[in-house]
Amino acid sequence: MQFYIYRTGYTGATPPFDIVRVNIFNGIPSNPASISVFGDDTSNRFVSGTDSQMYRIFNSSVPAPGTVPGTTRKIWNIKANVITTLNPGTYWIKYQFADAAMNPGFAPSVTIP
């Protein structure tokens, strides 16, 4: 699996994350009847991380005059080792990102024009 994650203010040249936890459920994870069909909340599935060549920015033109796009939220492409076959259906993925000091990351929001 691939995820796009950023950490505000991180300026390093290597990924700020080295822990990825993935848990796939056959229903809403908070529902007691849902069952984990792959993964867990403790196994580290991190494989690699690369610079996605993108930044998380805020609106740069509206309202006028807008804001200058910043470079304090570099987005990283993080790969996790998830090897499973899922039967047809609907699934929910619960995931966590951190480093050894347990600093979290953020998934950028999607803007659809």
Rank of each mutant, 00 (worst) to 15 (best):
A13Q: 13
A13K: 15
T14Y: 03
P16C: 04
P16R: 00
F17S: 00
F17R: 03
D18M: 00
D18T: 05
I19A: 00
R21P: 02
R21I: 02
V22S: 01
N23P: 02
N23C: 10
N23W: 07
I24A: 04
I24C: 00
I24S: 02
F25M: 05
F25C: 00
N26R: 04
G27K: 04
G27A: 07
I28E: 14
I28D: 13
I28N: 15
P29S: 10
P29D: 01
S30N: 11
N31G: 01
P32Y: 00
P32V: 02
I35R: 14
I35V: 15
S36G: 01
S36E: 02
V37R: 03
F38H: 05
F38S: 01
F38N: 07
G39V: 08
G39P: 01
D41M: 12
D41G: 12
T42H: 10
T42E: 09
S43F: 07
N44P: 10
N44R: 03
N44W: 14
R45C: 03
F46L: 00
V47R: 10
V47T: 12
S48T: 04
S48Y: 05
S48H: 05
G49E: 01
T50K: 10
T50I: 09
D51Y: 12
D51T: 07
S52T: 03
S52E: 00
S52L: 06
S52R: 06
Q53E: 08
Q53S: 13
M54A: 12
R56G: 10
R56H: 12
R56D: 12
I57F: 08
I57Y: 02
N59C: 05
N59V: 00
N59Y: 05
N59L: 06
N59G: 07
V62Y: 15
V62T: 15
P63Q: 02
A64R: 15
A64I: 14
P65I: 01
P65C: 02
P65K: 07
G66T: 06
T67F: 10
P69V: 06
P69I: 10
T72C: 05
R73I: 03
R73N: 12
I75P: 06
W76A: 03
I78R: 06
I78V: 14
K79V: 11
K79W: 04
K79N: 12
A80Y: 03
N81Q: 11
T84W: 09
T85R: 14
T85W: 11
L86N: 11
P88V: 08
P88W: 03
P88H: 13
G89L: 08
G89D: 11
G89T: 13
G89H: 10
T90E: 15
T90W: 12
Y91L: 13
Y91W: 11
W92G: 00
W92M: 06
W92I: 06
W92L: 04
